[in-house]
Simulated scan of single mutants.
Amino acid sequence: MSKKMRFAIIGAGVIAPLHARAIVSHPEAELAAVVDAVPEKAAKIAEEFGAAHVYTDTRQMLQECDVDVVCICVPSGGHRDATVAAAEAGKHVLCEKPLGITKADMDEMIEACRSHGVKLATVFQKRTTPHALLTKKAINEGKLGKLVLGDAYLKYYRSPEYYKSAGWRGTWAIDGGGALMNQGVHGIDIIRWMMGEVDSVFAYTAPLIHDIEVEDTAVAVLKYKNGAFGVIQGTTSVNPGQEPRFEIHGEHGTIIYGDSGFKVWKTVDGDAAPLVSEGSAEGADDPNAISSDGHYILIDDLIQAVREDREPLISGEEARKSVDLILAIYESSRTGKEIKL
């Protein structure tokens, strides 16, 4: 067997243990290093998951430590700098969502990885669930016929304490936005992946409950390029948080599902809903209540993409589409106009 691929994690916050758990449980991977500006945080993750090296400086780690892949787990506004530094050092990159928080950031990240010949993959683990994969397959096979409506209801709750827990949360400069850019980006990626490219959007966004500068509540109306319409609702203001819900309607059927399973699966050909094990409404109220299963699948995919020299499942170009849509929603809310993508 090829030698194990060595990983480093940059950023030892809430999401880092999901990456670490997935890495150490993979037979072809090992966790070599953890980086965080706060040495105690990096040391805690390193000790728990058996990483030999702890750093407080990303560039020092990239110079000194023999790693193949870097997992970017810093706050969203830091994704560009960490990704570009890794690419320049010849390391493959697995970046947490969102890819970046501006078009310029994403352009730079994609170009840096391309020009240095490294892979850029992004974490959208909701694409790996059985419900998402079966729904996408049904759409691709034409079971729903012409698509008419594609809606995403992403009603999360985050407490005031959550926003106070780190100075970057709820800021434009580092979080890049609120309920859509941080929590809702997963669901926005899903509905765009299911329905296809978006033609235009009109939206309202505001902080209705929390004392933050970005939105905690958003509603957007979408027109897809295939002619279908849709709605996105994204919040961190709904208490208690609700299970994310995706509703796909076509001329020949309807599929509605959430984290806990299919709610509706009706097609004119009379197919029964596929039997899959039910999940849970993970992360609706608590960002710590998220499984590492999806991260394992995406880490495995990146390892195989490197070995086979192919594009990862969710490339940088693919991952940026959800951010471009969110940025258009913000522009619509700011200007009061319909925005073409």
Results as ranks from 00 to 15, higher is better:
Leu31Ser: 01
Val268Lys: 13
Pro160Asn: 08
Met194Tyr: 15
Ala52Gln: 12
Asp66Met: 09
Arg320Cys: 04
Ile256Leu: 11
Ala32Glu: 14
Leu149Gly: 00
Gly50Ile: 02
Trp265Glu: 11
Gly316Trp: 00
Gly316Leu: 00
Arg127Asn: 07
Gln183Lys: 13
Ile23Asp: 01
Leu134Gln: 14
Glu28Cys: 11
Ala46Thr: 02
Lys44Ala: 14
Ala206Asn: 14
Ile15Asp: 00
Asp293Ile: 13
Ile45Ala: 04
Glu311His: 04
Asp324Ile: 03
Val70Cys: 11
Asp286Met: 10
Ser237Gln: 11
Leu94Ala: 03
Val70Trp: 02
Thr267Val: 15
His26Pro: 10
Leu222His: 07
Lys337His: 09
Leu298Phe: 09
Arg59Lys: 13
Leu99Met: 08
Lys340Asn: 04
Met194Trp: 15
Gln63Cys: 11
Ile303Gly: 03
Ile174Tyr: 04
Ile190Glu: 12
Gly150Pro: 09
Trp265Arg: 08
Gly145Tyr: 07
Trp172Arg: 12
Lys119Phe: 02
Gly336Ala: 03
Tyr224Ile: 03
Leu302Glu: 07
Val84Ala: 04
Cys65Leu: 03
Asn182Gly: 14
Gly250Cys: 07
Tyr157Phe: 15
Arg192Lys: 14
Ile15Cys: 05
Glu331Ile: 01
Arg127Asp: 05
Glu331Gln: 11
Thr83Asn: 00
Trp265Phe: 15
Thr335Ala: 00
Val14Cys: 04
Gly177Arg: 08
Glu251Pro: 08
Arg192Phe: 01
Val214Met: 07
Asp269Ile: 09
Leu144Arg: 03
Leu327Trp: 03
Thr58Pro: 02
Glu108Trp: 00
Ala138Ile: 10
Ser260Trp: 05
Arg114Leu: 03
Arg127Ala: 09
Glu197Gln: 13
His295Arg: 01
Val84Tyr: 02
Gln60Val: 12
Val219Lys: 03
Ala138Gly: 05
Ile326Ser: 05
Asn288Ala: 13
Gly117Leu: 09
Ile188Pro: 09
Ser25Pro: 00
Met61Gln: 04
Ala20Phe: 02
Cys65Asp: 14
Gly13Phe: 01
Gly234Ser: 15
Ile232Arg: 10
Ala86Glu: 03
His186Asn: 14
Val214Leu: 08
Phe262Tyr: 11
Phe202Tyr: 09
Glu317Leu: 05
Ala220Phe: 01
Ile299Cys: 11
Leu134His: 14
Gly258Asp: 11
Ala46Gln: 01
Gly100Tyr: 01
Pro287Arg: 05
Cys71His: 01
Glu141Cys: 04
Leu180Lys: 12
Lys103Cys: 03
Pro240Glu: 07
Gly177His: 10
Leu275Gln: 15
Ala8Gln: 04
Ser333Tyr: 06
Glu213His: 08
Gly234Thr: 13
Ala104Thr: 01
Ile9Trp: 00
Glu197Cys: 04
Ser332Met: 05
Asp81Ile: 04
Glu247Cys: 08
Asp301Lys: 05
Arg114Gly: 02
Ala121Thr: 08
Ala203Gln: 00
Cys73Glu: 02
Asp189Met: 10
Val34Glu: 02
Gly117Lys: 10
Ile110Asp: 00
Gly117Val: 06
Tyr204Asp: 02
Val221Met: 06
Gly316Thr: 00
Ala228Leu: 10
Lys4Asn: 14
His252Trp: 05
Lys321Phe: 02
Arg307Asp: 11
Phe246Pro: 06
